[in-house]
């Protein structure tokens, strides 16, 4: 559905994206990486807000016959007119996108993202969480073929995060959803594919399950009170270690999570 070929972008001497190439099909894609890894730059290039220094973004199987899928975008910072009401904002985006039967469509979206009760409130009077849910809802107006979500869960409480995950999973059956985040738990349950981005390059990418199964032998639960100076993270009462071999005597192999994987990729050099 979308092919990114050799896209590069630099800000003065900083290289934000280096020869990024990837092909996105239908499904949910999570782009993970620390701050400054190039996630937002990539999102901005895909959405046309930033011109790349080189490379191209193609919205089709081949470059010769470009089809033009619709794109929905939820930027990192709220991007709405404060004097519009919730309904008006969604309706305005629907009008811009030429959506038919707007009212029913908007009502359904408001229901899905739990903002129906605020439909006639002005945006400037909304709480941060409601504003964020509205921002996410507008990204799905007209059910576009590609939806880009840049840090979508910032400001959402745990219940709202669950609602978000459910809604996205439900709606993504026939679309490409790209979620850029550094909050691993937000995408762990819903992502089909994961891309780890660091310093503008893909360091690891693939199907979530494949990645995790490859990584199963790397993850260990340490015995209580044990001391290990390698990569570790606290998980409730347990301490988990990331190591290719058994790190210390008494360590038990456990199923890897996306967070372990993240730690393995980005924790080592830090």
């Amino acid at each position: 559905m979308m092919k990114i070929i050799n896209v590069s972008k630099s800000y003065k001497s900083t290289r934000a994206l280096v020869d990024f190439t990837y092909e996105f099909g239908v499904g949910i894609y999570a782009i993970l990486g620390p701050n400054g890894s190039g996630k937002s730059t990539l999102m901005n290039i895909i959405t046309g807000n930033l011109a790349p220094d080189g490379g191209s973004v193609c919205f089709s199987q081949s470059e010769d016959a470009p089809q033009r899928p619709k794109i929905g975008y939820v930027p990192q910072q709220a991007a709405m007119y404060p004097y519009f009401t919730v309904y008006e904002m969604l309706d305005y985006v629907a009008v811009l996108n030429g959506v038919d039967k707007r009212r029913e469509h908007i009502e359904a979206l408001m229901q899905a993202f739990d903002i129906s009760s605020s439909r006639d409130k002005r945006i400037r009077s909304l709480s941060g969480g409601t504003r964020q849910r509205l921002a996410i809802a507008q990204g799905f107006i007209g059910l576009p073929e590609i939806v880009i979500l840049d840090e979508p869960t910032a400001g959402l409480d745990p219940l709202q995060r669950i609602l978000f995950k459910n809604a996205v999973k439900k709606m993504s059956t026939d679309m490409t959803v790209i979620i850029a985040t550094h909050i691993v738990s937000d995408v762990e349950d819903i992502a089909d594919e994961v891309l780890f981005l660091d310093k503008g390059r893909i360091v690891k990418a693939g199907k979530l399950q494949t990645l995790l199964s490859e990584f199963d032998t790397y993850c260990w639960r340490l015995p209580k009170g044990a001391v290990y100076d390698g990569l570790t993270r606290i998980d409730g009462e347990d301490v988990r270690a990331i190591a290719p071999q058994k790190p210390i005597e008494g360590a038990v192999p456990v199923a890897a999570t996306l967070e372990d994987y993240y730690l393995k990729i980005f924790g080592g050099e830090r």
Binding site: N44, I46, T47, G48, N49, F59, R68, P69, K70, I71, G72, Y73, V74, P75, Q77, A78, A79, M80, Y81, P82, V93, L96, N97, G98, Q138, G139, P144, I148
Partner: peptide, 14 residues
């Protein structure tokens, strides 16, 4: 309002 980012994305292919 920052809506330009959404607008650019929405209407990029149109």
């Amino acid at each position: 309002s920052g809506f330009i980012r959404v607008l650019n994305a929405n209407l990029r292919t149109n």
